[in-house]
Simulated assay, not measured.
Amino acid sequence: MRCPFCAHEDSQVKDSRPTEDGAAIRRRRQCEACGARFTTFERVQLRDLTVVKKNGEREPFERDKLARAIGHATRKRDIPADKIDRMITGIQRRLETQGDEVKSAEIGEAVMDGLKALDHVAYIRFASIYKDFSEPGHFAEIAESVEKEAAPAPPPDKLL
């Protein structure tokens, strides 16, 4: 593993353990040249995914790009990082089981589903960019739909 500080090619693994959710291996490394310590994560990748964008372009799937998009939506929200990471891992696994190519719209919908279950404000933030809101009314519409879904159903005897 290349050292992020001095770019030396060799580093020594000092400690290795699974992450809390067991989806990755966390390794503490030390550079053999400069002695700096850093952490790396090793994840299982079932297959190489290609994302097919709306305009037909194809590009390799990047977990970090997905994490950044979700990070923008969840910024300043009180959501534990491990929940966000589990959501990202779940989305990636679901996409990997669908085949080698995945449409960007499928990724967007998977993120919307995950955020809706995780945090309504983050869901609305992501939706505003993903759905390309152009008017304030769009925010009101999606907020109303979230509020309706989140409201508890009235007891059956109150429906009549």
Rank of each mutant, 00 (worst) to 15 (best):
residue 82 D to V: 06
residue 38 F to P: 06
residue 159 L to G: 07
residue 9 E to D: 12
residue 143 A to P: 02
residue 105 A to D: 14
residue 107 I to R: 02
residue 75 R to H: 14
residue 28 R to T: 07
residue 118 L to R: 12
residue 90 G to I: 13
residue 152 P to W: 01
residue 44 V to S: 14
residue 49 L to C: 12
residue 85 D to F: 07
residue 160 L to N: 12
residue 102 V to D: 02
residue 145 S to H: 11
residue 116 K to R: 15
residue 79 I to D: 01
residue 35 G to T: 09
residue 10 D to C: 01
residue 5 F to S: 08
residue 133 F to I: 00
residue 129 I to N: 10
residue 30 Q to G: 07
residue 135 E to A: 15
residue 75 R to L: 15
residue 152 P to A: 15
residue 137 G to E: 14
residue 29 R to T: 09
residue 43 R to T: 09
residue 3 C to G: 06
residue 77 R to C: 04
residue 156 P to H: 02
residue 43 R to P: 11
residue 23 A to G: 11
residue 101 E to C: 09
residue 4 P to A: 04
residue 116 K to V: 00
residue 29 R to C: 08
residue 75 R to Y: 13
residue 51 V to H: 01
residue 18 P to N: 07
residue 152 P to N: 08
residue 25 I to R: 13
residue 117 A to Q: 13
residue 59 E to N: 03
residue 78 D to R: 15
residue 84 I to H: 07
residue 129 I to Y: 05
residue 33 A to K: 15
residue 32 E to N: 13
residue 114 G to W: 03
residue 31 C to V: 13
residue 32 E to D: 13
residue 37 R to N: 02
residue 108 G to W: 02
residue 51 V to P: 00
residue 32 E to W: 01
residue 114 G to N: 03
residue 46 L to R: 15
residue 54 K to S: 10
residue 2 R to G: 00
residue 103 K to I: 01
residue 51 V to N: 00
residue 105 A to T: 07
residue 149 E to S: 13
residue 65 K to C: 11
residue 51 V to I: 14
residue 66 L to E: 01
residue 135 E to Q: 14
residue 22 G to P: 04
residue 120 H to K: 15
residue 123 Y to H: 10
residue 32 E to K: 14
residue 50 T to K: 10
residue 30 Q to K: 08
residue 66 L to H: 03
residue 24 A to V: 08
residue 87 M to E: 00
residue 86 R to K: 10
residue 137 G to C: 07
residue 137 G to Q: 13
residue 76 K to P: 03
residue 66 L to C: 03
residue 12 Q to L: 12
residue 72 H to C: 08
residue 10 D to N: 14
residue 107 I to N: 03
residue 139 F to P: 05
residue 12 Q to Y: 04
residue 103 K to Q: 14
residue 91 I to Q: 04
residue 72 H to P: 00
residue 87 M to H: 05
residue 89 T to N: 10
residue 149 E to P: 03
residue 54 K to F: 00
residue 31 C to P: 13
residue 39 T to C: 09
residue 22 G to C: 08
residue 91 I to G: 10
residue 150 A to W: 06
residue 97 T to Q: 12
residue 95 L to H: 02
residue 152 P to L: 12
